[in-house]
Design a protein around this nucleic acid. Structure first.
Lengths: 339, 339
DNA sequence: CTGCGCAATGACAACGCTGTCAATGCGAAC
DNA sequence: GTTCGCATTGACAGCGTTGTCATTGCGCAG
């Protein structure tokens, strides 16, 4: 099956291949008349340019890499989906590259890969988006990259994120609006910037409503089910216990629900529980979890956008960035405090 | 950053570029001496061939596509991971292509994509691996493909799978070994071949041990949490209820646990529950779920292997296939029947 | 009517590799 | 010593596109 080349199109449209190339690449200086004739031929022959030839001849590869080392498959899947969809619109394709950032030869594995592929850019998701070794390597290889939900070094490169702080604030407001005052909080992994933002948001909401945070009800967690389970068993076994628990992510919130079940507490009657992330598991329990939906796919799409359009810096030279909206998803794990 | 080309290597090794190419592609008729000299130069310069140039000049693209339309992100992630790892070893890269098989222009979207990319092969996962439109399109475009865990039409093309039937049998054996005789079964989505295999395995194990299957305890589910939840609420509310429930997948098993919790039944004390798949959520509940771990990543790796090696048919012309081992994962949701 | 300037188009090399085929080297057979 | 055959190597032409630069066409000022 010999496939259709630019020559076939050129012949059919009665122009040179270069003119076809110009039309395809939206270059200026083509008469409208000619352009239409070419497009018609393209359509009729169902011509699709050969990516390999394009990238060999030109500067772009029409390939975007996604690097990740995230334990949550749901997160990765959302990133892929969002990015793929946007890429497809622009004729790009997505190359996925799981990374093992714990490996010592991590970076030395990477650079050759970049050299082989000549991707037009890469999309970095947590936690690799905050790996300085990786960022250095990318910059050294002059590969453009956009970070999704980075923790810090925001002035280093373009990024897309959501407002964790304000989301946590809204979540806390939700609990307070339901009448809760005795609210426990389970912190996330201290190495994750989001942990701190979420805690800050929680504290801010409490302060705004003049509710005191009981520090002995603020306990450390590690973003894992197990850590949430144990933190909750500790918290809920005390003589005085909160009427609501705000876990910094869903996995821990599920741990809280499991612990409550074990202690014969009914959620949400005896205890309201909220999480953060809206992972698939959040709906795999009863009661289904009230949580914050991160716009992961949209963030990835926005990141792909920046990469494809090349708008990696603002006019004044600072890294471009996008802040996307989250969504408070109220389900069955929260309930107004009984009179 | 001009990158290193085959010319640089050839110059350094003092041979022609064609000889370098021979070494790199493991072609015969190169003196050991020469080969070593070339490899040394490759090593020293850290040369990596340009994929675009390779695929333009040669027949292979060193790209493998993964098509999927699976609602479970964890499943997809495992597939990607397994495939990527194997691909990387062989210098291949993975292109992910989520498909929307419900879209009407599904196939017409697809063919151009294949034409553009010239992938060396594609990996098909459920449910798209059983989509006849897709298979037809791939065959028409002469794109080799390997199916992971296909339902039927096994003589059509190469595939990799596990023994759902025997896995279900072992799972049932586990329950029977624990002393359970009153076992409920929640069927999976009737359109999925695995549903039937799992049910058969269950029935076979029961028969082997001379235990009668109570047909009123065999209820229909749809592989979703909700369907498991509702099936279990029905099943467990009856005057006579089973001492164990075998759900055809984890999502439904989690539904069973949730229903049990709601009915104030303690798992596993009052009821043993088992699932199938070992999804991440299986560990996000208490008690953690006894289940079957599918070798998803390994299946994907094996599929990539077949694609890369080109061993798509056996010597007698039949499609190649691989059957991989599963694993029974015993956790906390099963317990010996009391007295 | 001529000439200038810019828009529109095309010819051709280059991208980095592989496939084809010719050239060379070398040992064995005569 | 010659010749033949095969193992080894290299020269060169593509692969299908884009970049560069030359050429053509055309409207408008002089």
């Amino acid at each position: 099956m010999r496939s259709i080349t630019i020559n076939d199109v050129a012949a059919k449209a009665g122009v040179s291949i270069k003119t076809v190339s110009r039309v395809l690449n939206r270059e200026p200086n083509v008469k409208d008349d000619t352009r239409e004739r070419v497009l018609a031929a393209v359509q009729e022959l169902n011509y699709k340019p050969n990516v390999s030839a394009r990238s060999l001849a030109g500067s772009r590869s029409y390939l975007i890499g996604v690097f990740f080392d995230n334990p949550s498959p749901a997160y990765n899947a959302d990133v892929h989906l969002g990015a793929v969809l946007r890429c497809r619109e622009a004729g790009y394709h997505l190359l996925v590259e799981p990374l093992d950032s714990t490996a010592s030869d991590f970076a030395s594995q990477l650079i050759p890969m970049l050299a082989t592929l000549r991707v037009d850019g890469v999309l970095l998701t947590p936690p690799v988006c905050d790996n300085p070794v990786l960022l250095d390597a990318l910059e050294a290889a002059q590969v453009p990259y956009v970070r999704v939900a980075p923790d810090g070094q925001l002035d280093r490169a373009a990024y897309v994120r959501m407002d964790d702080r304000r989301a946590a604030q809204e979540m806390a407001n939700h609990l307070i609006d339901l009448g809760h005052r005795e609210i426990g909080f389970i912190k996330g992994h201290p190495d994750h910037g989001a942990s701190h933002l979420r805690e800050e948001g929680f504290r801010e909401a409490m302060k705004d409503h003049g509710v005191t945070v009981r520090e002995d009800w603020v306990v450390q967690g590690w973003f894992s089910f197990q850590s949430g389970f144990e933190a909750a068993k500790d918290l809920l076994a005390r003589p005085q216990r909160p009427s609501a628990v705000f876990a910094s992510n869903d996995d821990m919130a599920l741990g809280v629900i499991a612990a409550a079940n074990q202690l014969r507490l009914t959620v949400p009657d005896d205890l309201s529980v909220v999480g953060f992330d809206d992972t698939p598991s959040a709906r795999m329990v009863w009661p289904q979890l009230t949580t914050i939906r991160q716009p992961i796919a949209n963030m990835a799409a926005a990141a792909a956008d920046l990469l494809i359009s090349g708008e990696m810096t603002t006019d004044d030279g600072a890294p471009a960035s996008r802040m996307l909206d989250f969504e408070l998803v109220v389900r069955d794990s929260t309930k107004p405090l009984k009179g």
